[in-house]
Lab assay of single mutants.
Amino acid sequence: MGFKLLSKLLVYLTASIMAIASPLAFSVDSSGEYPTVSEIPVGEVRLYQIADGVWSHIATQSFDGAVYPSNGLIVRDGDELLLIDTAWGAKNTAALLAEIEKQIGLPVTRAVSTHFHDDRVGGVDVLRAAGVATYASPSTRRLAEVEGNEIPTHSLEGLSSSGDAVRFGPVELFYPGAAHSTDNLIVYVPSASVLYGGCAIYELSRTSAGNVADADLAEWPTSIERIQQHYPEAQFVIPGHGLPGGLDLLKHTTNVVKAHTNRSVVE
């Protein structure tokens, strides 16, 4: 069995187990497998329904001669939608809004960016022009300005110390501490036991640490421990890039980060 097929099978099995364990909360999309990078042309966006009122959005972007996937989250909030992270750029984010209108038909009224990198804030200006209120932590807003990236308009308070959590509509926002970046936030959907790890969490097929220019490698494993301790009931975990899975993604990420750190020390 090929690795790609095995990865998709694991996603399907995880979703099936969740649907059985929580039949009222989960209505997993039966329309197909989780979209992969090879299936999404740059400039297009796919939506994948995880649970009743919960979707991931998947886009792709060219970077350094390669094409990478990027995940975000959409959560229903009454007759409105909360968006977590842009679709990595203005063109993708405009396509995301169009796809949401086509498939869901509810307005996106608020959006949260989970850290300051372009795959999370690139497209904020498109959201703002569409009347979406954009939010991020003060740290993310400051770092985005320093980096020359787009800056969300509103500040999220109460997320300055490791372990801080605040309720934001249908989700809980959690600051686990520094990891992929010093400002990275985690998003949890309690009604569906869905954990969105953003770039602080890796997919299972990833074996290298990737972009760690703004990471705190020493603190990252401790931050992941905080996530595990705060959300032990999480059933569906979405990484910032690639295929979702279960809580095993947290341990896998820790292993990859520690291996990278150990290699760096040896070198």
Rank of each mutant, 00 (worst) to 15 (best):
M1Y: 03
M1G: 04
G2K: 12
F3R: 04
F3Q: 06
K4T: 13
L5N: 04
K8V: 06
L9V: 07
L10F: 13
L10G: 08
L10V: 09
L13H: 05
T14H: 06
T14C: 09
A15L: 06
A15T: 04
A15I: 04
I17W: 04
A19N: 04
A19T: 05
A21T: 05
A21Q: 10
S22K: 05
P23D: 10
P23I: 08
L24H: 15
L24R: 06
D29A: 08
D29F: 12
S31Q: 08
P35S: 11
T36C: 13
V37F: 08
E39D: 15
I40K: 08
I40H: 10
G43I: 10
V45A: 07
V45P: 11
R46M: 12
Y48T: 08
A51D: 06
D52P: 05
D52W: 07
G53D: 05
S56M: 14
S56P: 05
S62E: 10
F63P: 04
F63H: 05
F63M: 05
D64A: 07
G65F: 08
V67K: 05
G72L: 00
L73K: 00
V75R: 02
R76V: 07
D77P: 01
D79C: 13
E80F: 15
E80W: 12
L81P: 02
L81A: 13
L82K: 00
L83T: 15
I84A: 14
T86Y: 02
T86I: 03
T86R: 01
W88T: 00
A90S: 13
T93P: 00
T93V: 00
A94D: 14
L96W: 01
A98Y: 06
E99P: 02
I100H: 00
I100P: 00
E101V: 14
K102V: 15
Q103K: 14
I104E: 01
L106I: 13
V108M: 11
T109M: 11
R110Q: 10
R110E: 14
A111W: 03
S113E: 04
T114K: 00
D118E: 08
V121G: 00
G123T: 03
V124L: 11
D125Q: 08
D125M: 12
V126L: 09
V126A: 06
L127S: 02
A129P: 04
A130G: 09
G131C: 03
V132Y: 00
V132S: 10
A133H: 13
A133R: 09
T134G: 02
T134E: 03
Y135E: 01
P138K: 15
S139L: 10
S139F: 01
R141G: 07
L143F: 15
L143N: 05
E147K: 10
G148W: 13
T153F: 15
H154F: 15
H154P: 03
L156I: 15
L156Q: 12
E157I: 15
E157Q: 15
G158W: 15
S160L: 15
G163Y: 13
G163I: 11
D164Q: 15
D164F: 13
R167D: 04
R167C: 04
R167K: 07
G169I: 03
G169P: 07
G169C: 03
P170N: 12
V171Y: 00
V171I: 06
E172L: 13
L173N: 02
G177A: 02
G177E: 01
A178W: 11
A179W: 03
A179P: 03
S181K: 01
T182A: 05
D183L: 00
D183V: 01
L185T: 15
V187K: 00
V187N: 03
V187D: 02
Y188K: 01
P190R: 10
P190M: 04
A192G: 10
S193V: 10
G198F: 01
C199M: 00
C199E: 00
A200T: 11
A200L: 11
A200W: 02
A200G: 11
I201M: 12
Y202I: 05
L204N: 15
S205K: 10
R206K: 14
R206N: 11
S208D: 09
S208V: 11
S208W: 12
G210E: 13
G210V: 12
G210H: 05
N211E: 09
V212F: 15
V212P: 10
V212M: 09
A215T: 11
D216N: 13
E219R: 11
T222Q: 14
T222D: 11
E225P: 02
E225A: 08
E225T: 07
R226I: 04
Y231W: 11
P232D: 13
P232I: 13
P232K: 15
A234M: 15
Q235K: 14
Q235Y: 07
Q235I: 15
Q235D: 06
F236S: 05
V237Y: 15
V237T: 14
P239C: 01
H241T: 00
L243N: 15
L243T: 14
G245F: 01
L250A: 04
K251R: 07
T253M: 01
T253I: 03
T254L: 08
N255E: 12
V256R: 14
V257C: 10
V257G: 02
K258V: 13
K258S: 11
H260G: 11
T261A: 07
S264K: 09
V265S: 10
E267H: 15
E267D: 15
